[in-house]
């Protein structure tokens, strides 16, 4: 009974989106979508055409994918580590903690479009090579956008503890470091994943948008822009699809890691 219920919910969870996706692609390929959206196959090329372009340009696309993913991952890592450190500092100094986090969140509300030129200016002396300068600026943008989600969520994980658990640690005469490793850190692990669910897609978007403003022309986001500028819509679409795939794959990896770590190691759901 329970098993059949599980199977049924699995079918609804995976089956429905798949069916919707298939219907969308079918209407797109048959031209029905163009009629609905009142557009033509030049602005919105057929899926098969996009796939063909992706195949033809696979080497060039992979070069740009590498550049974008590198920026997204390094920025995500730096931002998450910094965000967690900020959360720890806020926990250690509770008086200033929540205020400090509000500032970090406010900083995060500044649009990437506004941040990117500032960071490009900051990093202009980092290296003589344009590619490296641009890379640093892009990573900085992603770092800032990933930092806020992690610091706010990790702070919750470090401070919203099970009732009496702090008292329990006190009765064991546990020091602050012991309390951190035995109680606060494990308690914060699910919150780290909550933050990553926001910051992983955010890091991809951050990387793509920051490429628009970078000095050195590389990356999936930049290629979308460059191709639209020269009215190569089919190629632009090939990069748009690539960007979607990057986002989906990174999110899928996160979900997999979350289910393995939370269920197997910490036995949580």
């Amino acid at each position: 009974m329970l098993h059949s219920k599980k199977v049924r919910s699995g079918v609804t969870n995976i089956g429905c989106p798949l069916l919707f996706g298939a219907a969308l692609v079918a209407s797109w390929q048959t031209g029905l979508l163009h009629k609905i959206l009142k557009t033509d196959e030049y602005i919105l090329p057929y899926p098969m055409r996009i796939i063909d372009i992706m195949k033809e340009n696979s080497d060039k696309i992979m070069l740009n994918v590498n550049a974008s993913v590198k920026v997204a991952l390094i920025g995500l890592l730096l931002g998450s580590v910094l965000g967690y450190l900020i959360a720890i500092i806020a926990t250690v100094f509770p008086k200033y903690g929540s205020g400090g986090l509000t500032i970090v969140s406010a900083f995060n509300a500044i649009p990437i479009v506004a941040l990117a030129p500032v960071f490009i200016n900051w990093t202009k002396d980092v290296s003589d090579i344009a590619e490296e300068r641009s890379m640093a600026a892009k990573i900085l943008v992603v770092t800032v956008t990933s930092m806020a989600a992690m610091s706010v969520n990790a702070y919750r994980g470090l401070t919203e503890l099970p009732p009496f658990s702090e008292d329990l640690m006190k009765t064991y005469a546990a020091g602050r470091l012991t309390e951190f490793f035995k109680l606060r850190f494990p308690n914060s692990v699910p919150y780290i994943f909550t933050a990553l669910r926001v910051s992983v897609p955010g890091s991809v978007i951050g990387a793509l948008v920051s490429e628009y403003f970078a000095e050195y022309i590389i990356g999936v986001g930049r290629q979308i822009r460059e191709n639209i500028l020269i009215a190569q819509y089919a190629t632009a679409w090939a990069y748009i699809v690539t960007a979607c795939i990057i986002g989906i794959v990174m999110y899928a990896i996160l979900m997999l890691a979350e289910s393995i770590i939370l269920k197997a190691c910490l036995h949580r759901t």
């Binding site: 099970p162 009732p163 009496f164 658990s165 008292d167 329990l168 009765t171 109680l183 494990p186 308690n187 692990v189 910490l266 036995h267 949580r268």
Partner: peptide, 14 residues
Amino acid sequence: RYGMVFQSATLYDW
């Protein structure tokens, strides 16, 4: 020198 038992069991679920 003392152990304490609280209103809730306060077990760590991990």
